[in-house]
């Protein structure tokens, strides 16, 4: 790093920079920490930023975890997330690779057509009518397919493929590999960061998706976790997720926040492993020079 003899003003500068970063850290973390604390809140206590560990109550988690509805929703979320990532990544890679080949006839036209859908969206109801006409209402396919390809992710991946050294592909082609083999054996192994990053984008989008399930699915038993969370937070059908007749041992706030924690948790477990690829993966594709 650029470290030389520090003048007093430079030292002040460094201090204020670090102070600012710590401030950002605090502002980011305090709300999340507080959510965690409230989720441990026992009855009759006021929530506070630092709940004594001997006061922690896991009742709210117990209430939620022992509900079959929650588990069903979690399973639905898992299916939608994993299935969604598989479908989306496959479609995106298969579309991005040909479009990254500058010599492909009609490439500009196709990119233009795809870009247009990014800029101009037909809206909710026209899309709903399509899903209905395809007979996909009330099936997972409606949610999985409708948002399968994100134009942004597609373009990022295309730019990434373009940035790969062409010499490797050339070499493979001289050895007699066809386009599929080049993609599979040369391009994809080099694309780990972008695949992980875009995969995370798709995964998170699917995991967080609550709007399309509400719109397309009518069976309660198909609903994923975010819908459950929204219902719990807005007090819509709370009875559905916690036993109404059993003596309720956790305050409502704790239940709500425990639900928030439970739903965020799986993502928090995956995120750090993929986060380090962000800068590598995203930046290459984000701006076209």
């Amino acid at each position: 790093m650029r470290k030389r003899s520090l003048s007093p003003s430079d030292r002040l500068f460094e201090w204020s920079i670090d102070l600012f970063l710590v401030g950002v850290l605090v502002v980011t973390l305090v709300p999340m920490w507080y959510v965690l604390m409230v989720s441990f809140l026992p009855f009759g206590k006021s929530p506070s930023l630092f709940l004594a560990p001997w006061d922690w109550s896991f009742e709210a988690y117990a209430q939620l975890i022992f509900q079959p509805t929650i588990w069903r929703a979690a399973l639905n979320s898992l299916v939608l997330t994993l299935g969604g990532v598989a479908i989306s990544l496959t479609l995106t890679v298969m579309a991005a690779y040909p479009l990254s080949r500058r010599e492909l006839p009609g490439r500009g036209l196709i990119v233009g057509l795809i870009l247009f859908t990014f800029l101009f969206n037909a809206g909710l109801i026209p899309t709903f009518l399509v899903v209905k006409d395809l007979g996909l209402l009330n099936t997972y396919w409606s949610v999985l397919l409708n948002g399968a390809v994100s134009v942004y992710n597609l373009l990022v991946m295309k730019t990434f493929f373009q940035s790969l050294p062409e010499s490797l592909e050339e070499a493979a082609r001289i050895d007699g590999a066809n386009d599929w083999q080049v993609l599979w054996h040369v391009v994809l192994p080099l694309s780990r960061p972008i695949l992980l990053t875009i995969g995370l984008f798709y995964g998170v989008a699917n995991w967080n998706n609550f709007f399309e399930p509400i719109l397309f699915l009518s069976d309660r038993s198909l609903m994923p976790l975010p819908v459950v969370l929204r219902d719990i937070l807005t007090g819509l059908n709370v009875a559905e997720y916690v036993e109404g007749t059993a003596a309720q041992a956790a305050p409502a706030e704790a239940l709500k926040m425990a639900a928030v924690v439970l739903i965020t948790l799986p993502m928090l477990l995956v995120y750090p492993w993929i986060q380090r690829y962000f800068t590598k993966g995203v930046l290459i594709g984000s701006v076209k020079e």
């Binding site: 009518l129 399509v130 390809v149």
Partner: peptide, 19 residues
């Protein structure tokens, strides 16, 4: 290779425009 992606855009992005 491009076909599935194109079909996707045709069905889920251009058909709604028609609607």
């Amino acid at each position: 290779m491009l076909l599935p992606g194109l079909l996707y855009f045709l069905i889920f992005r251009y058909w709604p425009l028609w609607n």
